[in-house]
Design a protein around this nucleic acid. Structure first.
Lengths: 389, 389
DNA sequence: ATAACTTCGTTCGATGATCGACGTAAGTAG
DNA sequence: CTACTTACGTCGATCATCGAACGAAGTTAT
């Protein structure tokens, strides 16, 4: 708690607004804090705003992140969509857009499309390209986070080992963070909705089923970066359901959006995708409703085990199917609270995602923001004297 | 990388043996390192040993942890046994003992027994009481780590909320760390056998089944400290097996040592405990062998899911049943490598525990050692000027 | 209005930690 | 024995941080 980066951290978290606050919280002398703040202001990351309320003496000069000159881009790539968001470093969305793409067209075409959208957003928000300080990207497949390369992504042919960051670093001269889309969603959800939770699971129920893991406040990616792949855990309910992974009885072959649609079709109500199932539920279709709730139970069965194993504080449910979260969460809770240990469920909350359609791009932006506001990144940047604004 | 604690950390990990080494690795000036080392020597934690090999100039004076004046006590409490070990702070066992106890006799009696064993070990190893710098304890139930109090432990009546550390702090004037026995085992196994693995699961298969989780090199205890309780995850194989937890179909009600014994008895071969099953397997009993392998498959089914979820580098199997690890691990691997995703199993190793009977007490000792050698603990201690040796 | 008080921010000399040059110790190579 | 190499300790210089003192800018009491 004594570096310039820590000072910035307190400001960005809203934990301190004045120099005196900072001195109290860091334990440093006021003079030292003032020097740190001056450096950060000179660096362009912090600005002084209007005077604050007096508490009986001279009013303090409030400090804020300099959101005018610093922003990040967050990108959410899906199988068939691409959402790009421009955020200031306070996390406030400035502009965003969603366009259809085919991820199967390969990295060159897709990333060029993303690049074009980025420029549009910058123009629309009237921000120069130099104000972009980092880029975060979520992709629908496993990624080696350190290098930003997808690793044998099942639904992204042509992307294996492609160095995504390189495409942008040459164009923007900033660092590019690439991660799995579910991790990015977990991060976004945590910061936007549950700032305090150190242990959180974000369960995305779309066509398939995935899970982002926040352990001790940080993303857990596992040894090969494949952690959270819960879609292919075996469930007892349908031992013969064939999964795209080649195995049978996988969770997502029973309770994923595609599986629910298939089962609904087989039962006589035509549905092609998870979206169709959602539509039917919203139209009051009893069979669809029953199926979603039953799917929730199956997912809950897996989550009950993970609750015992991981002991999270919160489970957040997102993805297409979460649009009908009432029956889905009802089914999940039913099983979780019955099957998990009381100590683990005592303070567990199971809630729908609050971040909505933009969750992915905002979470990707958050990944970028967290990176450039990290204390050691700031300390390095200040000591090497790289200008920001 | 610049505090006295970091210098000690390098020495204790064996990463640096000379002052020049330390200067290179920390980036500090040699003079600064020398001052740090002097402080640590004065504090009694480091000592100079014989001169090292010359590499063409003046031979360096090697530095080591001062193991003569510093040791820790590690305690492994089970339902019916108590193992105490005295280790020097290098982790070398100096003396140990195992005695039968009944944990049900409650904290006063059991801890008094432990205290007596501690004094015996100190006498036997000829170390003064003052050389004990910390105490680590593993107990068979959930513990609130921060306070060292068991929380509703199912097999430890009378221990609920009992402040175990207080019992010893008054007698030894050192810090006491209390954790779940499986966590302690995971810690011990990691340090003794797989120093590099950041993500490790230690699965203990005794009467029940539990799991210690090492994530990013540190123990994951979860929100309520109940993480790793995998014994009560539902398995599809025996939906009607009644578990002591009140539910049915729990993993430990199917594949735990007690369950295996019960099933073997029901099949005509009398066995009362997991131990009996182990004995039968070692005697070549075909039914017991088949049952253990089948139990391995059931556990493997659960672990396959956890491998997908957590993506560990290694799964280490310990506990009584691991004494027959050939059939057990065969069954586990069979299922894990079939059911988990290739990316996750690619570099996964499933191995028996190497720490043996003493694993618990050594791991508890390791918990204590890690605590007193932690950089920030050392920094605090040096700045407050508390003497050590 | 004015004085007294409170709080905020800055200036500046004192202090302490760290550095790096230098000197000495203790070995090897020729 | 001399030159060279490497390691360790000493000591003055330097730099970061602190804390006291001061000025700035408000509120409260008279």
């Amino acid at each position: 708690m004594n570096s310039p980066g820590d000072v910035l951290d307190l400001i960005s978290r809203g934990a301190a607004e004045t120099r005196t606050d900072l001195a109290r919280q860091t334990g440093m002398a006021r003079s030292t804090v003032a020097q740190r703040v001056d450096a950060l202001i000179g660096f362009g990351l912090v600005e002084e705003t209007e005077p604050g309320e007096s508490t009986g003496g001279r009013p303090p000069r409030l400090l804020r992140l300099n959101t005018a000159h610093n922003c990040v881009l967050g990108v959410d790539l899906g199988a068939t969509h691409c959402r790009v968001a421009l955020l200031d470093i306070g996390g406030k969305p400035l502009a965003s857009c969603e366009t259809p793409i085919q991820i199967t067209q390969g990295p060159h075409e897709v990333l060029a499309h993303v690049d074009a959208r980025m420029h549009e957003l910058l123009t629309r928000a009237n921000r120069p390209l130099e104000s972009v300080k980092a880029i975060g990207i979520g992709v629908p497949g496993p990624v080696e986070f350190a290098t930003g390369r997808p690793v044998n992504p099942p639904i992204m042919p042509g992307w294996h080992e492609y160095p995504i960051p390189d495409f942008f670093t040459s164009r923007y001269n900033v660092e590019v963070l690439v991660d799995n889309d579910v991790n990015v969603l977990a991060l976004g959800e945590r910061r936007f909705a549950y700032p305090g939770s150190a242990h959180l699971l974000f369960v995305k129920i779309g066509t398939g089923i995935g899970c982002g893991i926040v352990a001790d406040g940080r993303l857990h990616r596992g040894a090969q970066g494949s952690a959270g792949d819960i879609g292919h855990i075996r469930v007892p309910d349908a031992p013969h359901a064939v999964c795209r992974c080649g195995n049978t009885g996988c969770l997502e072959a029973v309770a994923g959006g595609a599986a629910l649609a298939a089962r609904l079709s087989a039962a006589g109500t035509p549905a092609r995708t998870g979206h169709d199932v959602v539509t039917l539920v919203n139209q009051g279709d009893a069979a669809a409703l029953r199926l979603v709730r039953e799917g929730g139970r199956v997912i809950g069965d897996v989550l009950a085990g993970l609750v015992n194993f991981f002991n999270p504080e919160a489970i957040v449910v997102g993805g297409v199917m979460a649009q009908v979260h009432e029956p889905l969460l009802a089914g999940m809770r039913e099983v979780i609270y019955q099957r998990s240990l009381p100590l683990a469920t005592h303070r567990l909350t199971v809630v729908p995602s609050r971040s909505g359609e933009e969750g992915g791009s905002l979470g990707a932006g958050r990944l970028a923001i967290d990176h450039i506001l990290a204390p050691d990144y700031i300390n390095r940047a200040l000591s090497t004297g790289q200008g920001a604004a």
